[in-house]
Each structure stands twice: as C-alpha cells, then as structure tokens.
Design a protein around this nucleic acid. Structure first.
Length: 291
DNA sequence: GGTCAGGGTAGCC
DNA sequence: GGCTACCCTGAC
C-alpha cells in the first residue's frame, strides 16, 4: 500500500481487501451514507470524510496525512491482513468460502464504544433507514457541529454529557421509539456510575458481554454487536434474524434457541467468529437467502 | 386504515 | 435456560 497526499485528502494506492460498499453496508455502521457518485460520506471520530474507490486506490477526501496516520489507519483496521484471514475462513467450509467471495472487501471498523452502545440500542427491532434517521436526529440536536462538507452540515455523535441534556420525551422526538427510556437510563448509568467504556476494550469477551448486558435495552445480540464493533471483541457472534437464517439454512441449526445458536457459532468459528459473522451476514442479507 | 415484520428485549416461568 | 408479550414505526 502506498500513500499519496493530494489536495484536501490522501490516496491509498494498491490497497487490497477494501470495498466501500462492503464495509459500509455490512451492518456495522450507521453514519456512512452512499452519495450519488457512488462514494460514501461519513461521520466518525469527530470528523467528516468521504471515501471513494477509483480502480484499486482509495481516495479519502477532507483529511490529511496526519489524521490518516493517527486516526484512519486504525479506524479502518488497515494493519490487519484480511487476505490471510479470508484464506483461513474459506478453508473452514464451503458456505463461508462463498460468503467471503461475495463480500471480499469487508473490514470491521474500529468504532467508538459509547456511540456503538447507543446506536445498537436504537437498532433493536428497527430498520436501517430508521436507525440512521434516529442517530442523525440525536447528533444534530445534542452533538456539536463538526463542519460543513459539500454544502451540508455535519454533527458529531453526542458525548454522554451532551446526550444527558435530552429527556425521555426529547429522545422520543428523535424517533427512537420505545427505546427512548433505554437510551435515557443508559446515559444516566454511564454518567452516574462513572462507567469508562474505553476500559471495556481491555476486558475478556465474556466479561465485556456480561457488563454490556447490564444496560437497559441491551440483550445478547446488541451486546455482541457493541463488543464486536466498538470493543474489539472479535470472538463475538451476534445472532440476528439474518444470521439465524444462515445458521438454519447452512449449518443445520434448525431447532436451536438463540442463546444456543450464539454459542454454536462461537464454538464453530472460534477466535474469528466475528469476522465469519460479518461475511455471512452480508452474504445472506444481500441475497436475501432463507427469507 | 388494519396488519405485519423489522439487524430483539424484558420478564415471566 | 426457554417462551412470550410487547415496545414503535412505516410499508403494504
């Protein structure tokens, strides 16, 4: 991979295993929006940037070399050898091989734990466009403005302190639905109990999962998503409706309860369960397998 | 305008 | 542990 500085941005040349559509549409993030020209504009790490793939190079606009080295290199998990990872997964079984071939440009982003906590509480029994809308509302009303990009204003996801200014009714107004009280209580808990979500990264997977489930509105699936996308717990295996379908269709988990399916997936795929889940999720969801 | 399902959870056995 | 009632929204 070669890095080249350009006007208001950088270009990564010869980059492998990075396909914006795969990365941003595999269910892990809600603030990356596809633009008319096929590029993606997203808010993360208190910044707004645009990602566009041109041939085999990735153009990151509205940034600089310093931010790339300090922030985006880690955020996009560029140190990881996804080629080797995919090779291992493809060897596991025929279904996973197909899933990896279907979404070869998937990467798991290293996102903020607090933002994941609230975002995935909103995601429960919800649809992606509505999740995105609610998170946008929350950010516009309680987060601070980051700046203007291509004629549009962008707002950071609010900190716990910022979000604590919202009442349950305010949160309902943001279109969070019945999850309003969950968000309110979770925000209060984080502030009142001085919970440091950064410390969750250092916990083992099981402890992290158990601690996350203590928050209201966080069940097994949501906790797995937060742990996987916000706390580097790559052994997590979130079982949502799509993963449930794939486990039933491909892995003979026909009459299995959700908790058993979760353990089954973790045992089956081991340390890479989170990655396996992402490839499988993207595969079945895009093709609507099992629906 | 009712019905249904959506990237599940809480609460009860 | 498993089962169920149910939180809200928008698409049909």
């Amino acid at each position: 991979m070669q890095i080249r500085e350009v006007e208001n941005g950088i270009i990564l040349e010869g980059i492998e295993d990075f396909e914006p559509a795969h990365v941003f549409d595999c269910g892990q993030c809600f603030r990356w929006i596809r633009q008319e020209d096929g590029s993606y504009t997203g808010v993360a790490m208190n910044r707004v940037i645009n990602i566009n793939k041109e041939g085999d190079s990735i153009h990151i606009d509205n940034t600089n070399l310093e931010d790339f080295e300090n922030i985006w290199y880690e955020y996009f998990d560029l140190a990881r050898d996804y080629g080797a990872l995919k090779k291992d997964l493809a060897k596991h079984d025929e279904n996973l091989k197909k899933a990896v071939e279907f979404g070869p440009g998937i990467r798991i982003l290293k996102q903020d734990g607090w933002e994941m906590l609230i975002s995935f509480i909103i995601s429960s029994n919800n649809r992606i466009p509505m999740i995105q809308r609610a998170i946008n509302n929350i950010s516009e009303r309680y987060g601070h403005k980051i700046g203007t990009y291509r004629g549009k204003d962008y707002y950071a996801f609010p900190s716990p302190e910022e979000l604590s200014r919202a009442s349950i009714e305010d949160l309902r107004d943001c279109k969070t639905g019945f999850r309003d009280k969950y968000i309110y209580h979770t925000t209060r808990a984080v502030l009142d109990e001085k919970i440091d979500l950064k410390a969750f990264v250092d916990m083992d997977q099981d402890t992290c999962h158990k601690e996350l489930m203590k928050f209201k509105g966080v069940g097994a699936k949501v906790a797995d998503c937060i742990a996987l996308f916000g706390m580097r717990k790559y052994q997590s295996f979130p079982v949502d409706v799509w993963v449930k379908r794939v486990m039933q269709e491909f892995y003979g988990a026909e009459d299995m309860s959700l908790p058993k399916m979760r353990k089954f997936g973790m045992d089956l795929f081991g340390d890479d369960a989170g990655f396996a889940q992402q490839y499988l999720f993207y595969y079945v969801r895009e093709l609507e397998i099992g629906k």
